[in-house]
């Protein structure tokens, strides 16, 4: 009984309390860090944003929501457009920014 209790505690402790779903966008025209500042700055200011990751080599922008909040995909797309770029593809990915960043770094 004690073993079952410990195993249950272990499983609970290893299960994320919150399943993260990030928004991953492929962006055209994003060639220069200096010019892409607007994407990070503007999306970071949005109330539901926990983290933003910009990857110039993969032409990717990833946005992770704060716990219990959902991202306004349309508003994010508008912010990218206002920063001067075009989104060509949007995906919902069940991973955090840190996890996606780690994957993209490995792929390089």
């Amino acid at each position: 009984m004690k073993k079952i209790f410990i195993a249950t505690l272990l499983v609970i402790s290893l299960t994320p309390a919150f399943a993260v779903t990030s928004m991953k966008a492929t962006v055209n025209g994003m060639v220069c860090a200096f010019c892409a500042q607007g994407i990070e700055k503007r999306i970071s200011k949005m109330p539901a944003t926990k983290a933003v990751y910009v990857d110039l080599k993969k032409k990717t922008v990833v946005v992770e929501p704060k716990e219990g909040m959902s991202l306004d995909q349309k508003a994010i797309m508008e912010e990218v457009k206002d920063a001067g770029y075009d989104i060509v593809k949007v995906e919902s990915v069940p991973k955090s920014v840190a996890e996606i960043k780690a994957e993209l770094v490995v792929d390089k």
């Binding site: 962006v27 055209n28 025209g29 994003m30 060639v31 220069c32 010019c35 032409k59 001067g84 770029y85 075009d86 060509v88």
Partner: peptide, 12 residues
């Protein structure tokens, strides 16, 4: 004034 911008996959 930005008169025209072309955003391409690998260029702008």
């Amino acid at each position: 004034r930005l008169l025209k911008r072309w955003n391409m996959p690998d260029a702008q």
